[in-house]
Design a protein around this nucleic acid. Sequence first.
DNA 1: TACCAGAGGAG
DNA 2: AAATCCTCTGGTA
Length: 771
Amino acid sequence: MVMCVLDADYIVRDGKPIVRLYVKTSEGAGIELVEGVEPYFYALPVADAKVLSEELGGLSGVVRVEEKHMVDNGDPVDVVKVFASIPKDVPQLREAVLRLDSCRGYREADIPFARRYIIDSGIVPMDGSDQVELNVASVDIEVASGGEPNANRHPVAMISYADSRGLKRVWVAGKDNPGLEYVEAVGSEGEMLEKLVETVRTQEINIITGYNSDNFDFPYLKDRAEKNNVKLNLGFDGSEVRMERRGMNMGARVAGRPHVDMYPVCRQVFNLPRYQLEDVYESLFGERKLDIKVSQITEFYESEDSEKFKILCEYSMADAVATLKIALRMLPLMYELSKVIRQPVYETARMGSGQRVEYLLIDEAYKQGIVVPNRPGDREYGDRDDSPYEGAFVVDPVKGIHDNIVLFDFRSLYPSIIISHNVDPSKLDCDCCEGKAPRAPNNHHFCLEGVGFIPGVLKGLLDRRVSLKAEMKSEEDLERKSLLDVEQQAMKLLANSMYGYYGFQRARWYCRECAEAIAGWGRKYIQKTIKIAESKGFNVVYGDTDSVYITKSGLEDVDEIIRVAKDFQKEINAELPESMELEFEGFYPRGVFITKKRYALIDTQGKLTVKGLETRRRDWCDAAKSTQQKVLDALLRDRDPDKAAETVREMVQRIKSGEVPLSELTINTQMTRNIGGYVSEGPHIAAARKAMKAGMDFKQGDIITYVVTKGSGSNIGDKAVVVDFAEEGDYDPDYYVNNQVLPAVLRILEALGYQEDELKGLGRQTSLGDW
DNA sequence: TACCAGAGGAG
DNA sequence: AAATCCTCTGGTA
């Protein structure tokens, strides 16, 4: 029978911890109790483990000890496993142990008990998630506050709910049903909350989701529940929703029914200009969902017109449905990550890359009898070198248009370097291979004997990915194929994070020398590739980190160009270490290179690829971006500069006429710190300040969407206004022409050899002359 | 004009 | 709480 472990926690009974595994099987959901699990950590002896064992025996709080042979940073080490009676005792006990004369340190005393149990027992969380039916429900609330909602003053206006079993509900209190089958009118706010809890229970929900529900819906519901003397006991065990601090943000934990907030998940997985529910929904499903303005929530709620109230209900329902749809699309990736790193999905969905890599490594360390390094304390963190180290090599591009470009890149360059050079902290600068092992450009070397811990883990990930991809090829069932694809993506994500992890100063397996060596070897390989390409008569027009764009002058025939390029590729690959490979990535009939990291290409299918240019950036307005895109299209596809010029002229005209809608003029810029944390404030902060004075709330991480209005003042910031406060037609045409559209297109045209003054005419809409 | 902080992209 | 390299803007002196 398949048993999917959704979540784990523990309770203490009679002074003993009991692990609770929340599971779902084909029979339904349940809790498995595991008794006899002992909390523990390791004590490191100064010299003799026996002496330490004896001394530990006399320490109060120590239940028992066990001497163990383990491996620490590649070397055998004797440790004493110290058992405590309950997990809460560990923090105090570890400090007491540290004070013993025969103890030089402790390890693994900060791994949460239930999560530790998952690792030690070999349980794979979410395994079987595709074989048992997981019921997913999304929850969304509306508050009619007229401004920023405040749980002390504003009740919940409505709660909307949608689940994967097809049930939809909108609960409203003290209002008539406007005639929608999913609306249920109840008497009070408290009853709405009770309805939600009851429905989650009767629908046997396993996964709860929301959009920004960690920081809004659940804390709000919790506060209101308290005010109404109602318990928000959504937990499978009947427990209430618990708010936890997780770094900068909050997490709403529901025992046994993992709550996954889609907002942070989408921010992590997608690259979008904005991450409002509407934006994510549209980019995922290519359609817009019903949307209303924030100010309309209160207006429609308080309106006597029942049609308006009906629209509000429909909007709220649409939010819950959209969130559910997003969740059903995104959760499989979270489940797969959860499986690989062997942590509950609630935790996994809230982790960054560093933490995910770390738990993967902790799990592997346990399997191999390796003692996990401690997280750096404040002291060690401060001692770690925080100066930047030399990273990747970037070729200054040959600016302008090139025809018939061949792109090669190294497959998984950094992971393959880690594996082929055995880059691991325990293999760093061994005596045995001094002079024998190849030196990295930072002059360090790595032991040739035995596979390092991290290279081994990484090889496991890459091998698994290769076999998944092979399985995918022969798989005909599309559903199964997409599951394999998601699993493959999880492997890739983790493999690609390993290099960054080495350079991460808060990492347990931090190794600056390793990170530098990897980057250094990366530079060496790409530079060597460039050199050989040039010696073979190719022109290297651009390259970045692991890629080279080459052309061949004198050859007209495309097949011939690709043939000679592939000969060159073969030659490179013959010289590379086994796990490394230069791959043919594509052929482009034409491309334009502006500067490092900024260029555009067109492929044989006529598809444009744009990198780094304004088109790709959220902090430029659509008017500028779409004009730039059209210019690139005209130049690369139609090879028609006149058409490009016409496009620009039209947009300049439209802007000057004042007819461009604000939606084409908004600029999105993230507030990367809290207001007050700025030494110098750009237009987005100026706009945010004004909006905050008017009652809006902005915090670190929010994306400010603003427009530059006619306004007055010498700075752009003086005229920048958050879009909600702007009127259609009120925008500064000079700014949009001179600071948005023209710079974006002029850079491209200049790279093509047009003179600036010759192009300036564009702005004045004079004759374009004969360029 | 030169410089800096800030932002967001590439790989 | 993954890394560095790089371009560009807006504000200021």
